[in-house]
Nucleic acid binder design. Structure first.
Length: 602
DNA sequence: GCCGTTTTCGGCCCGACTGTTTTCAGTCG
């Protein structure tokens, strides 16, 4: 089976970690950067390899001849000689071990050399036995931190982040749909509700020949084990370890089956209760009045039979959606494709992979009307912009902006929030920006009171427009900041600070329930990609909108659905300059009057 | 190992923080 981009990227990351382990200079970063590019590719690397070999792969940024050859080797043979040699030299689960917060490649080597630790389980045993504290530079606190990290990893074991599986599920769905004799096919389950973690995959299909669909499904290249396969149902385990179920149902039952397998369980129970109240019966085959089916072909039909409007999957969590539906108070949820702007984009000025121009072009091609460039600021030491470089970038953005028609590039920054809640860029420089994002990248462990105070102080800065990825969590890796979210939301309302839904699949931050609090409080939101490469610009539509919908948000709650000037008018800073472009036919005239001042918005 | 070019080598990987130290190694972004 040909490796996916995610699998190739994982192998490249493994190379990087092994090289890091022995302090090989520079190469680890090279492999990491290449992994990043492969992962973010919008077509299979294997396709590039088949079509153009080393040359095609090496044409990608950060992929040269050496890495291109190794990727090719991996695609053709399933292995890489260099990686195998490194694995033999240090036979450890380096990806698993370094997934533990606080454990890096150097420690993995030390753990193996001194204690013979190869796996996360080995490490857990050793930490419990008090062996880790015997290592140099490690003590009791190190041990506790490791155990905490392992517990955190385990607690989500079995479930995968949405971002790890949505593409795969869509891909399988598309292949089922394209199958001859299949009239309908859809994913169901928690992935259809876009929960942030997914336990297994469910598909519901209508087909002329159920057996043919079963044969196709159980023979998918992704399938590792077939647990069972009958006339209407197949259960398999995929190569990535997840279980996947397939149901084939009659067309008259498709809506009912989709509803039943989409859940949530509690939502289904509530629906069945409503059916009983009406003297009806609801199951996965339809709504029945005695023996007679009265609904089942579509989900809308099923809900209508229960005197309810259609309830979107993202709301089916038994958190008030039935009552709201009965009362006709379901929100008009925000739809994919309604965002006009993207306010968090990194470029190669800092840790992004692509240039300003490339990101702007790609965003425009995707149909956006404006973006803000928000590179990191300086206390993020590896690559952040200081005030001088930030001013240079502002100039570069202004120059680029005047060249692009019907598309605005705003100057912004992802400004670091210091430990005490001050910002790491001076106010007079912030004043030159169109959009100021503020974000936490350090001191994650402060107490709830300190952390909350820190964020509120930062939001009180008159230049701070958007609080980015407010809880700073990394799914499956880092816990969210300990925050009094009600206090944060109240402060956002008071200071006029916008809260962000960061759509990076590893973040999804704010999360759904916080979005709902914001919607209730009337705090405006934005949905941003946090893009570090062109391919990431799709994250808002793929993930950000889902989070917003799960948080009951309408388009009117999300201000980057607005045109650029209306959007800017909703930000907090008074006196922000008007950014409306001079219409083209007036431009020449305007440029002949260099003394003309831009007038401040009042 | 990749990139860029002042083009086949030299530069890239920096600083804060943590937990362990007493002068530092490792992790993280």
């Amino acid at each position: 089976m040909r490796p996916t981009n995610a699998e190739l990227a994982a192998r490249l990351r493994e190379m990087a970690l092994f090289l890091d382990m022995t302090s090989v200079p520079f190469k680890p970063r090279a492999y990491e950067k290449a992994a990043y590019v492969i992962e973010a590719l919008d077509r299979p690397a294997a396709e590039l390899w088949a079509a153009g070999g080393v040359k095609a792969l090496a044409a990608l940024p950060n992929v040269g001849k050496g890495i291109a050859e190794r990727i090719g080797e991996l695609i053709d043979t399933g292995q890489v000689a260099d990686l195998d040699a490194l694995r033999r030299a240090t036979p450890v689960d380096v990806l698993g071990l370094t997934a533990i917060e606080g454990v890096g490649p150097k420690m993995v080597k030390l753990l193996y050399d001194e204690l013979g630790i190869r796996t996360v389980d080995d490490l857990e045993r050793a930490a419990r036995a008090g062996q880790v504290r015997t290592l140099p530079h490690s003590g009791e606190k190190t041990e506790q931190k490791i155990l905490k990290g392992i517990a955190f990893l385990k607690q989500r074991a079995g479930r995968r982040p949405l971002g790890d599986v949505l593409e795969l599920a869509r891909d399988i769905e598309a292949r089922l749909r394209a199958l001859t004799g299949v009239s309908q096919a859809a994913m169901a389950g928690s992935i259809r509700r876009r929960k942030e973690t997914i336990g297994d995959l469910d598909f519901v299909v209508v087909a002329r020949d159920a057996e043919a669909v079963m044969r196709f499904f159980t023979a998918l290249p992704e399938v590792a084990v077939v647990h069972g396969s009958g006339h209407t149902k197949s259960m398999v385990q995929l190569a990535n370890g997840m279980d996947a179920d397939l149901r084939v149902v009659p067309a008259a039952s498709f809506g009912a089956a989709l509803n039943y397998f989409t859940g949530s369980k509690d939502h289904n129970v509530a629906l069945r209760r409503l059916a009983i109240e009406r003297g009806l019966k609801l199951n996965e085959y339809g709504v029945f009045d005695g023996e007679t089916a009265v609904a089942g072909r579509t989900e809308a039909e099923v809900y209508a039979a229960l005197d309810l409007p259609y309830i979107p999957p993202e709301l089916r969590e038994m958190s008030g959606e039935i009552e709201a539906a009965r009362a006709g108070r379901l929100p008009q949820l925000i739809e994919p494709g309604t965002l006009r702007g993207d306010l968090q984009i990194q470029t190669d000025w800092t840790d992004g992979a692509d240039s300003l121009e490339t990101m702007a072009q790609a965003a425009q091609r995707l149909g956006l009307e404006y973006i803000a460039i928000t590179d990191h600021t300086h206390s993020l030491a590896m690559m952040g912009l200081g005030e001088t470089r930030l001013r240079e970038q502002i100039a570069a953005i202004r120059a680029l902006d005047t060249r692009r028609r019907r598309f605005r590039v705003l100057a912004g920054a992802e400004v670091n929030i210091n430990k005490d809640g001050t910002l790491d860029i001076a106010d007079e420089v912030l004043a030159e920006l169109d959009v100021v994002g503020i974000a936490v990248h350090s001191h994650f462990g402060l107490s709830r009171a300190e952390q909350t105070r820190r964020l509120i102080r930062a939001m009180e800065n008159p230049h701070a427009d958007i609080l980015m990825h407010p809880t700073a969590r990394l799914l499956g890796k880092r816990e969210p900041l300990d925050l009094d979210m009600d206090a944060v939301i109240t402060a956002a309302k008071r200071t006029g600070t916008v809260l962000e839904i960061d759509a990076l699949p590893d973040r999804l931050d704010l999360k759904d329930e916080h979005v709902r609090l914001c919607v209730a409080a009337g705090v405006p939101l934005v949905i941003d990609s946090d893009a570090h490469a062109v391919a990431h610009l799709r994250f808002p539509d793929d993930y950000g909108i889902s989070v917003a919908r799960r948080g009951w948000a309408s388009a009117s709650d999300v201000i980057n659905t607005l045109p650029v000037d209306a959007f800017l008018a909703r930000l907090k800073r008074p006196g922000r300059r008007v950014t409306t472009k001079t219409p083209r036919h007036q431009r020449r005239k305007a440029t002949t009057k260099p003394t003309e001042k831009r007038h401040p918005r009042t």
